Amino acid sequence: MKTAESPTPTSDRSAPNQRVAHQPEGTRTLDFETIRQSRPTTWTAALEASVDVDRGGRPDLFLVTVDDDCPANCSLAESLSGEHAGWCSCQVFQATEVCPHLCVLRQRAALGDLALPTRER
């Protein structure tokens, strides 16, 4: 069982210093510290879930499967100032602007298990 706290293989990590100029339409600025405090159920669910993360065709794209549910297409990048920008195909993100899929990606990045690209704009 993989969790957000389980290390991912080195092959799942992106090369350092990768950059991304564009993310999908509907990408939003995400303050994960605020999300962790204001949406603890979503944040904790991501920590406790069984998760698989696969890389997409660009450094910011990921296919995230939480608890054997349908996989979600996600985009997450970080600006030079440390601000995150993300998008997810799941209905939860479309309705609330935050979801467990993006929380999983941020948690893995914070643990050093996943490198996020730098957002150029």
Rank of each mutant, 00 (worst) to 15 (best):
3 T>W: 05
69 D>F: 09
41 T>E: 15
62 F>L: 08
51 V>C: 08
81 S>M: 12
1 M>D: 11
46 A>D: 08
57 G>M: 10
21 A>L: 13
112 G>D: 06
95 A>C: 03
24 P>M: 07
15 A>E: 11
28 R>W: 08
69 D>N: 13
26 G>S: 03
37 Q>T: 08
5 E>M: 15
59 P>K: 03
102 L>I: 06
101 H>T: 06
103 C>P: 03
112 G>F: 03
111 L>T: 07
80 L>K: 11
49 A>H: 05
2 K>S: 13
93 F>E: 02
43 W>T: 01
71 P>C: 02
80 L>R: 13
99 C>A: 03
96 T>P: 00
43 W>A: 02
29 T>N: 14
19 R>F: 05
83 E>C: 10
114 L>G: 01
54 D>K: 13
87 W>G: 02
28 R>V: 10
95 A>G: 03
98 V>P: 02
42 T>M: 12
112 G>N: 04
121 R>F: 09
116 L>Y: 02
19 R>G: 04
68 D>K: 13
47 L>N: 08
72 A>N: 00
15 A>M: 09
118 T>G: 00
87 W>Q: 01
112 G>L: 07
50 S>M: 09
104 V>H: 00
99 C>L: 00
49 A>P: 05
48 E>L: 14
38 S>G: 04
112 G>K: 01
32 F>E: 03
81 S>Y: 08
121 R>I: 12
3 T>M: 10
104 V>D: 01
108 R>K: 15
116 L>V: 03
13 R>T: 08
51 V>G: 03
81 S>G: 11
111 L>K: 11
43 W>I: 05
112 G>H: 04
103 C>D: 01
111 L>Y: 14
19 R>Y: 04
2 K>A: 12
